[in-house]
Simulated scan of single mutants.
Amino acid sequence: MTSLANQLGPLRAPGTPTPAAPAHAYDLGLLVLRLALGLTMAAHGAQKLFGWFGGGGIDGTGQFFAASGYPSPKSFAVVAGLSETLGGLGLVLGLLTPLAAAAVAGTLVNAIAVKWGGGFFAPQGIEYELLIALGAVALALTGPGRIAVDRFLPGLRSHRLGYGVGAVVLGVVVAAITLLLRK
C-alpha cells in the first residue's frame, strides 16, 4: 500500500509552475464535463438568440422574460442568450474558464429562481438547472484541466482557486442584481 504523499506526488510552493506532463485521466474527465456543459449551454443560448433547436428566438424568449417579471424583456433575452452561448463556448474551449463558468452559473441562478416552487424533480423542478449550475461552479473552482486554451494564456497556465472563487462570487452577485430587478 502506498502512502497518501506518494499518491499525491511532490508538493510545490504556491506560485511554482506545474511541470509539463502528459494528459491524465482527470484532464480527460474535465474535458468531457466541459464539453457536456458547454455544448448544452451554447445550444440553449442559440435557442434564445436565433430560435435554433426549437427555441423562441429573441421575441419568444422576450415574451417568456416578460411573463417572468423581467423589465426590458428583449434586452434580458439577449443578455441571457449571450451569457449562455459565450459562457458555453468558453467552457468547450477551456477559454477564460472561471468567467465562462460564472456566466453559466449566474444565468442558471436566475433560471432556478424563476422555476422555484415547482419542486426538485423535472420537468417542473430545478434539478436540471441546479446540476448544470453546480457543474459550472465545479469547473470554475477546479479549472479546465490541461486540455484547454487557458493553458496557453499567460496568468492562466496554472489555475488558481482564487480566480474560481472570485468568478463564482461575481456570477452570483450579477445574478442577484438581475433578480432584484424582477417584478
Results as ranks from 00 to 15, higher is better:
Thr2Arg: 08
Thr2Glu: 06
Thr2Phe: 09
Ser3Met: 05
Ser3Tyr: 03
Leu4Ala: 14
Gly9Ile: 06
Gly9Lys: 12
Ala13His: 11
Thr18Glu: 13
Thr18Asp: 08
Pro22Ile: 13
His24Asn: 11
His24Thr: 15
Ala25Met: 15
Ala25His: 15
Tyr26Ile: 13
Tyr26Ser: 14
Leu28Lys: 11
Gly29Asn: 06
Gly29Glu: 06
Leu31Gln: 02
Leu33Gln: 08
Ala36Met: 09
Ala36Gly: 08
Leu37His: 03
Thr40Pro: 02
Ala43Asp: 03
Gln47Leu: 07
Lys48Leu: 07
Lys48Ser: 04
Phe53Met: 04
Gly57Glu: 04
Ile58Thr: 07
Asp59Arg: 09
Gln63Thr: 09
Phe65Glu: 06
Phe65Lys: 10
Phe65Val: 06
Ala66Met: 08
Ala66Thr: 12
Ala66Cys: 11
Ser68Ala: 15
Gly69Ile: 06
Val78Glu: 05
Val78Thr: 05
Val79Glu: 09
Glu84Val: 05
Gly90Thr: 07
Val92Phe: 15
Gly94Val: 05
Gly94Tyr: 05
Leu95Val: 06
Leu96Pro: 12
Pro98Thr: 12
Pro98Ala: 11
Ala103Gln: 01
Thr107Pro: 04
Val109Ala: 14
Asn110Met: 11
Asn110Lys: 03
Ala111Thr: 00
Ala113Gln: 03
Trp116Ala: 08
Trp116Pro: 02
Gly118Glu: 08
Gly118Val: 05
Gly119Lys: 13
Phe121Cys: 07
Pro123Glu: 15
Tyr128Ile: 07
Leu131Asp: 12
Ala140Thr: 11
Ala140Asp: 13
Ala140Cys: 09
Ala140Lys: 07
Leu141Pro: 00
Leu141Ile: 10
Gly143Leu: 03
Pro144Gln: 04
Gly145Ala: 09
Gly145Ile: 07
Gly145Asp: 04
Ile147Asp: 00
Leu153Pro: 06
Pro154Glu: 03
Leu156Trp: 14
Leu156Val: 05
Leu156Cys: 10
Gly164Phe: 00
Gly166Pro: 03
Gly166Tyr: 00
Ala167Tyr: 01
Ala167Cys: 06
Val168Leu: 04
Leu170Val: 09
Val172Tyr: 03
Val173Asp: 08
Ala175Gln: 01
Ala175Gly: 13
Ala176Thr: 15
Ile177Gly: 14
Leu181Arg: 15
Arg182Pro: 11
Lys183Arg: 14
